[in-house]
Amino acid sequence: MRPDLPSATAAPAAITAPAVLAAHALAKSVPLANGQRRALFAGVDLVLTAGDVVAITGESGVGKSTLLNILAGLDAPDAGTVIINGQAIAGLDEAATTALRCRAIGFVFQAFHVLPHLDLARNIALPLVLAGSAQAPALDAARAMLDRVGLGGRGGDHPAVLSGGELQRVAIARALVHRPPLVLADEPTGNLDPETARRILDLLLASADAAGSAVLIVTHSEQVAAAARRTLRLSNDGLAAARPA
């Protein structure tokens, strides 16, 4: 699809490839029990192009996950715009947002989140069938993805028999099975031991590279942040470069 960038002027001048994700001046606050609101962040600007790998770090409670949710269209910002694959989320209704997410974004979570009653192949094929794909090609694609993440031939297994690392491989396979332009990962190695975490991170980045997807990782981990091409730090004032890319 040909990206149409109505807000390209707002993006940093460094853009050389079409932007997969462009966020501008995002702000978010949460209500408190006493009726006041606490500001999480404001003035967040972010652009990801194809092949980009960006890590966002920050203190607990600063709103990293909230930012991720806003970028995925799961939460609404108090101010600012989010454009995914050239489409502004603000103008879309729930169904269209869901459809866009289904098409353009892959997710990897800290807690894996696989459906316990579906086998691995079906778990991985979910994004495809939710987008309306037929069963056979979806399962074929899922099995191909299983091969890629090193779980070849285990498509019929159920999640209950898998270890944490294996579950996250499944999650990565699911995130990339429909070749989304953008992968959002929320502490993808948070529940894993350091050795497994390293392998999983490598797998994620390699798979994303192979699929041509941009990756945005929210993490505490220095190790993860180090693997990213760019690392940004989220604070109440917005995003700033944590260290040179």
Binding site: A72, L74, E94, A95, T98, A99, R101, C102, R103, F107, H113, L115, L126, P127, L130, A131, R174
Partner: peptide, 16 residues
Amino acid sequence: RPQFALLAVLGLSRRG
């Protein structure tokens, strides 16, 4: 609920 949430994130609309 969490399952439904996951499905929503993966692209299942509310009507769905």
